[in-house]
C-alpha cells in the first residue's frame, strides 16, 4: 500500500536578501551571498524550494574581547588585529561571512572615533573578500555616528549593518539607503514589534529585500525555546504571505551560548557536567543547529569547532529528501 504523503501548498516564500557586492555591482567582494528564498519549512525539500543554505559568520572584534580563555585560544595570534583575525576566520575556519563588532567605539571603553571605526571596516574589507556584517557597540547615540561613518566609508559594498531597533532605527536606515547597504532589524522576542519595526523601516524607503530580522535569541538552556517558537511562527507567517515577516533571520548563537556558565565553567567546578572543551563546543553548536530547524538563515558564531559541526549539519540537511 502506498502512503499518500502530506505536502502543504504554501502560498508564498521567504524573501531573498543579497549580501555584499562585487566590483560590477559597486563593491569589492569576490562574490555575493544570497539568503532566504525558501518556499517551505526548513529542509523539507519534498515539499518546496529550499533555495539557499543557511550561512555562518564568524565574529571579529576591534578590541580584545572578554571571552573565555578556552574560546580566545583559537584567535590568540590575531586577537589584536581585526584584519588578520578576519582573514584567519575565512582561511582557516571556513567562515562564509565576517561579523565585525565595533566594540571599541564604546564611550566607556576605548572610545574610538567614527573615523577610526570606519578605517577598521576598510582594513577588514581589504583583508577578506567575503561579504561583511558590521554592528556598533550597543550604545545608541555613539552607534548612530559610527554606523553613519562606516556606511559612507564602505559605500556600495552592501554591508549588512546593525542594529535598527524600535527606539532607534532612523539613522541607520537612512545610512543604509544612502550608501546602499542592508540592515539588521532587531526586536525583543515579540512578533508584533518585529513586524512593526519592519514596517517603519520600509516606510522610510528601504526595500524589504534589504532587511534581515534578528529575533534576539536565548542560548541553549537559557530561554532558547522562546526564539525557537517565535522563529517558527515567523517562518509560517512568511509562507502564508505575511510580507512584513518574510525576511530571512539572523541569530547570535556565538554570543548567547558563550554567556552560559555551561560553556565556561571547568570540570573542576562542575564535575557532573563533564569536560569543558567539548561541552563548550556543543553548547554553541546545538544553539545554532536547533535554530536552523526553525528557519535561521545567518548564524553569528565564535567557536570554530562548533562552526565545523554546524556547517556539516547544514550540508547534510541540504541533501534533497524529495
Amino acid at each position: 500500500m502506498a502512503v499518500t504523503l502530506v505536502k502543504e501548498r504554501w502560498q508564498s516564500r521567504v524573501g531573498e536578501v543579497i549580501l555584499g557586492a562585487t566590483p560590477e555591482q559597486g563593491g569589492t567582494r569576490s562574490h555575493t551571498i544570497t539568503v532566504g528564498g525558501d518556499g517551505t519549512l526548513p529542509f523539507l525539500h519534498f515539499e518546496g524550494t529550499v533555495a539557499n543554505r543557511p550561512v555562518v559568520a564568524l565574529e571579529v572584534n576591534d578590541v580584545e574581547p572578554d571571552w573565555s580563555p578556552r574560546l580566545k585560544e583559537y584567535y590568540a595570534d590575531v586577537i589584536n588585529n581585526p584584519a588578520a583575525w578576519a582573514k584567519k576566520c575565512v582561511d582557516e575556519y571556513g567562515a562564509d561571512l565576517i561579523y565585525l563588532k565595533l566594540v571599541g567605539a564604546n564611550p566607556e571603553g576605548a572610545n574610538r572615533t567614527p573615523a577610526e571605526c570606519a578605517q577598521t571596516v576598510k582594513d577588514v574589507l581589504a583583508a577578506v573578500s567575503v561579504p561583511l556584517i558590521v554592528v556598533g557597540c550597543e550604545e545608541a547615540e555613539k552607534d548612530n555616528e559610527v554606523m553613519a561613518a562606516v556606511a559612507e566609508a564602505a559605500a556600495g559594498e552592501n554591508l549588512l549593518i546593525g542594529l535598527a531597533e524600535q527606539e532607534n532605527y532612523k539613522s541607520i536606515t537612512a545610512a543604509a539607503m544612502v550608501h546602499k547597504h542592508s540592515v539588521i532589524a532587531r526586536s525583543p522576542l515579540d512578533i508584533n514589534i518585529c513586524k512593526q519595526l519592519n514596517i517603519l523601516i520600509n516606510e522610510m524607503g528601504l526595500p524589504l529585500n534589504k532587511i534581515i530580522i534578528d529575533p534576539m535569541i536565548g542560548g541553549l538552556g537559557f530561554g532558547l525555546e522562546y526564539a525557537y517558537s517565535i522563529m517558527e511562527r515567523a517562518r509560517l507567517g512568511s509562507l502564508v504571505n505575511d510580507k512584513m515577516l518574510a525576511m530571512p533571520m539572523v541569530c547570535t548563537p556565538g554570543y548567547e551560548a558563550n554567556r552560559a556558565k555551561e560553556a565556561n565553567a571547568g570540570i573542576e567546578d562542575f564535575p557532573a557536567w563533564g569536560d569543558l572543551h567539548d561541552r563548550g563546543t556543543m553548547w554553541e553548536a546545538l544553539t545554532a543547529t536547533s535554530l536552523i530547524q526553525t528557519g535561521a538563515s545567518i548564524l553569528l558564531m565564535r567557536n570554530p569547532e562548533a562552526v565545523k559541526l554546524v556547517k556539516q549539519n547544514i550540508e547534510e540537511l541540504m541533501v534533497s529528501n524529495a
Binding site: G221, E262, A272, W273, G274, A285
Partner: peptide, 27 residues
C-alpha cells in the same frame, strides 16, 4: 527537534549528553 519520541545514541560522555538533554528541556 523534529518528532522522534525516542532516540538511541552511542555517546555516553557527560559533556556530550548534557547539551542534548538541555535542548530537550527547552523544546
Amino acid at each position: 527537534a523534529k518528532y522522534a519520541s525516542m532516540l538511541v545514541i552511542n555517546a555516553v560522555k557527560k559533556e556530550h549528553v548534557l547539551p542534548l538533554l538541555t535542548f530537550r528541556v527547552n523544546l
